Simulated assay, not measured.
Amino acid sequence: MEAGIVGLPNVGKSTLFNALTSSQAAQSENYPFCTIEPNEGIVNVPDERLGRITKYIVPQKTIPAALKLVDIAGIVKGASDGEGLGNKFLSHIRQVDAIVQVVRCFEDADVIHVSGNVDPLADIDTIETELVLADLQTLENSLAKAQRTARSGDKEAKIRVTAIEKCNAHLESEQPLRTLNLTEPEAKSIHSFGLMTAKPILYVANVDENDLEGKDPLVDKVRQHAETSGANVVCVSAKLEAELAELDEADREEMLADVGLEAPALSTIAQAAYKTLGLQSYFTAGEKEVRAWTIPVGATAPQAAGVIHSDFEKGFIRCEVYTLEDLETHGSEKEIRQAGKLRVEGKDYVMHDGDICHFLHKI
């Protein structure tokens, strides 16, 4: 699963990406289009449960869940009409599963804001408007073909026409598609369009390093907007994160303590992006490795097994499951089994976040 980091030029987007991925993505303070091709990085999703598991099951290695981040070039007003290579940049957004929008929530005379003043809601509106216009173009281009096919009696095309018309009406009311409820067949019929306003979104408020809790009124505006649209907000100082990323572990811990943080923002952002994508983790635990596996919320046991190997899903027999609380109470898998706490689940079992599993399957 991928999350695309977007934002207007000079909001700290690439600075934050570099800090999160410890990469050297092209960046500059006052040149809006320094990022032309999207930079990509894989980040671990911090999960304190892994450490708790390894207290009782000591592995040769521990593998956390991972998330792919894509740093997409700064978007400007008119991007949907090709401004600033907009069409190329918008095509990158179509390919990701969720959007992480960085909005600037601090004043700095040394860093020019592309619109001349700092207004995070205006930034959000600019990008949302461009994505809405781009989605309207996509739908308009697809409607005529869907209507012609529907007139021949094609049932799927009729569903697609209905979905497109619903989406058009919603977008024309200046509402993103993530707030529109479509039936499952309708959503499936237009899934290949890659509609950008249908993607879940996470707002990252880039705050001053002296306002890490986000008490600035600008951040409150972002929170209020997010609340009305069902999104989450994370506060982070991209400048501070960039400084932390350059330190060794000991110096990093000291600096975190000095500013009153327990961990770098990676933890908060990765976990929030994970949640925004509708993902959760289950674990496998043994002497070779303790590992977190990524699955969508609502995945069944066979689907979870398929994340390890497709043959596990095809040949699924049953799943043996216990919880971290069971492990901490009884101290070992053997004791869990003897206490009758090891559950045996079948093909219809819906996985819970944090399940610790063994899958039995046909070879």
Rank of each mutant, 00 (worst) to 15 (best):
I308E: 11
L133P: 02
L212P: 04
L244F: 08
V344K: 13
H309C: 13
L212Y: 06
A265P: 03
E249G: 01
V350L: 06
T21L: 09
D355P: 03
I124F: 06
D154L: 06
A245E: 11
I36C: 01
K88C: 08
S22I: 09
K334N: 14
A73C: 09
Y274T: 01
S80N: 14
V11I: 13
L16P: 06
N30D: 14
I57A: 04
N30L: 03
E83D: 12
G86Q: 07
A98L: 04
E313V: 03
I53T: 03
T300M: 13
P120W: 06
R151C: 04
D216G: 00
T294D: 14
Q137K: 14
T21C: 13
G230V: 10
N210P: 00
G153H: 13
P64K: 08
Q338C: 00
V70W: 03
L195F: 05
S80T: 10
A65N: 04
S14A: 05
S332V: 13
L244T: 10
V6E: 04
L277P: 08
A245M: 10
S14C: 05
E243M: 05
E253N: 15
T183R: 03
E174C: 02
V45D: 06
G298Q: 10
I72Q: 10
E249I: 12
A273L: 05
M351C: 15
E128P: 00
A265F: 10
A257N: 15
D326T: 01
L180N: 12
D208P: 01
E243D: 15
G86N: 06
G116I: 02
T228K: 14
C357A: 08
I164F: 02
G116S: 07
V6Q: 02
E40I: 15
I93M: 07
A273M: 09
A109W: 01
V297D: 02
T183L: 07
G82M: 04
K88R: 14
Y56W: 10
L8H: 02
V11Y: 01
G340R: 03
A187F: 05
V234I: 14
